[in-house]
Write a protein that binds this DNA or RNA. Structure first.
Lengths: 75, 75
DNA sequence: TACATGGTTATCATTAATGATAACCGTATT
DNA sequence: AATACGGTTATCATTAATGATAACCATGTA
């Protein structure tokens, strides 16, 4: 099944990926800037986790976008 | 100490509380609408947790505000 | 006094996010 | 062929978010 939660996870994963690629930042570079392992960034972008606010904030900072842009119109 | 993470938690807690009170919704009613226990809503509003995206989404929906409004200009 | 309302704090169990490592897959390059 | 790059997936341990319950503390009010 495809729950609301799963849809949200997929949406945020896609959003991060899209913004990252727009800026031509490799997954591993963004991961490093956020102090994540590259594997964990892949996990997030593939919608396998329900990230915490602090995780989203770190990603926003390192993508140089405001946090609200990361979560605007998800779904 | 007062880490970035802790400041963010305090900020989101205050934001939720502020929006909830503007709408005159008791803590326990918002909690119930989100399928939380009232104790857990108090915990979040007092900055004791780093909420997940899905938790924030449920709160936004039940406060009738877009998710981005919940996270805009946090600290 | 007794009761209800709105909120807080503490505690414990369970679930899931995150940290970390390793093994992979393509593609390109030397 | 070997190496590097960007990315993916699986796994395991640790941490923390969440679920749930109970005991409280005000304040108001019947």
């Amino acid at each position: 099944m495809d729950t609301d939660k799963q849809k949200l996870q997929n949406a945020i994963g896609q959003r991060v990926k899209q913004l990252r690629e727009e800026k031509n930042i490799p997954q591993q570079d963004l991961a490093a800037a956020c102090n994540f392992e590259k594997s964990n960034m892949a996990r997030l972008e593939s919608g396998k986790t329900n990230p915490t606010l602090y995780t989203l904030k770190k990603i926003a900072v390192n993508l140089s976008v405001p946090l609200e842009k990361l979560v605007k119109d998800l779904n």
